[in-house]
Simulated scan of single mutants.
Amino acid sequence: MLIVGERINTSTKRIAQAVETGDAALIAKVAREQVTAGADFVDVNAGTFLEKEVDYLPWLVETVQDALDVPLCLDSPNPEALIKALRCHKGEPMINSISLEEDRFRNLLPVVTSRPCKVVALCMAQTSMPTTADERIAVASELIERLTKAGIALDKIYVDPLAQPVSVDVKMGSAVLQAIAEIMKRFPGVNTICGLSNISYGLPARRLVNRSFLTLALAHGLTAAILDPTDTRLVATLLATQMLLGRDEYCSN
Rank of each mutant, 00 (worst) to 15 (best):
E249Q: 12
S141K: 13
A46I: 06
E142H: 10
T36D: 15
R87E: 15
R106P: 05
M172Y: 11
L147S: 03
S97A: 15
E102D: 14
G195A: 14
L108Y: 04
N107D: 14
V61F: 07
P58L: 13
T192S: 11
I199A: 03
V159D: 03
V112E: 06
H89L: 11
E101A: 10
G202S: 09
P188W: 06
V235Q: 01
N198I: 01
K156I: 05
A140G: 13
E80V: 14
K90Q: 14
D43A: 12
R186E: 13
A18M: 08
S200K: 08
Q242H: 00
T113K: 13
V190S: 12
K118L: 13
I152L: 15
K84M: 09
S174T: 13
D66R: 12
Y201N: 11
I95T: 07
R211P: 09
Q242T: 00
R87Q: 15
L214D: 03
A181E: 15
C194Y: 02
R206G: 02
S167V: 00
D160M: 10
L72P: 05
P116R: 11
G173C: 04
T127Y: 10
F213W: 05
G91I: 08
G195P: 03
K90M: 07
A153F: 00
I226E: 01
F213I: 00
K52C: 00
A85E: 06
M94Y: 04
R7Q: 09
E101N: 14
K171A: 11
M124D: 00
A85P: 01
T36H: 12
A125M: 07
V168C: 11
T215M: 11
M124L: 15
I144C: 10
I27P: 01
P110S: 10
I8T: 05
K185W: 06
E182R: 14
D66P: 06
T232A: 14
A121G: 10
S99P: 06
V209L: 07
L208W: 02
D43R: 04
N253C: 11
T237L: 00
T223F: 01
G202M: 09
T232P: 00
I226K: 01
D40S: 12
K149I: 06
A140P: 08
L238N: 00
A153R: 15
A175N: 09
